[in-house]
Amino acid sequence: MTSIAIARKSIGRRTWRFASLAAVATIVIIAVVAGLTTPAFLTVGNGLVIIRAASMTGIVAIGMSYVTLSGNLFALSASALGALLAVIFALVTAQTDLPAGIAVVLVGAVLAGVLQGVAVNLTGNPIIATLAFGAVFRGLASVLSGNGVLRIHNTAAAWIGTARPLGVPTQSWTFVFLAAVSWLVIRKARLGRQIILSGANREAAVASGLRVNIVTCLALVMLSVGVAIVAIFTVAQFSEARSNLFSGYDFDYIAAVLVGGIALRGGQGTPLQAALGAVLIALLENFMLLNNVSGGLLMTVVGTVVVGAISVFHLLQGKNR
């Protein structure tokens, strides 16, 4: 008889805490390496660039995490919706004033969320449904903008887009605030619990009397509101909107969620992890840009990080099924 080797330790439910720790650790490592090797990295100006970029990706990623946590994988329409809302914001603000622009965009976002939610419930396939909506949104954006650049001249908007209370951009204040709120929503709010349970086991959620369809709609509404906030900030910062805004950003949002270690199947994790994931990706991208890494290589590296992260989490998860 032979002794069987000691088995690998079961990680258990600490996996998710581990995921956040891993993200934080990676962020620190990248920052240290970048700081040591790339002088431009540690400048105040660059710090602001990173924080802003992370904030904008992060706000949408937080919204996206609700969709993932609720068991609906991802919405592939976020970037297109952002463009549409940006165009609408620019049009309305230019015609009337800033409050009206913000109000219309928020109403539009809620509407877009509900519509997509209904479509996801009807088709049962969030990927296909949101992909189609993405095309619609992008198309509408280009129709409404006449394929041109819409400019706004609004000092209040410009302040929102460029101000730095206490030296930190408004975008980042918002990001931190929303991250805190998102944590509260998932941990303390009834809606958060409903999202988590719906994602953990859809059938059991229905059997327990949860209105899973409504939960799906609300998750998409929260994502859309996040997108609206980013759209407003972007137009405010640059004082213009185009129909091709945010093109190709969907991958970043999704990557943030995945690198943060949120379970693809839903029901496990918190939006904070997506926020951390966004910071990580922003750092990585900035570091490579400063080192003149080409766009193609950049995509390859980010993609590889995502694949690596998912694989690691999958392995860990397999251990405590």
């Binding site: 009834r190 619990r193 086991n201 059938e203 059991a204 229905v206 496990q268």
Partner: peptide, 24 residues
């Protein structure tokens, strides 16, 4: 397994699932 338990959630969340409205 299909619709009785939320395997990836803890027992508190499992047991309170049908009464979320009462405990919030």
């Amino acid at each position: 397994k299909r619709d009785g338990v939320f395997a990836v959630r803890n027992l508190v969340e499992n047991l309170s699932a049908p009464v979320i409205d009462q405990v919030s």
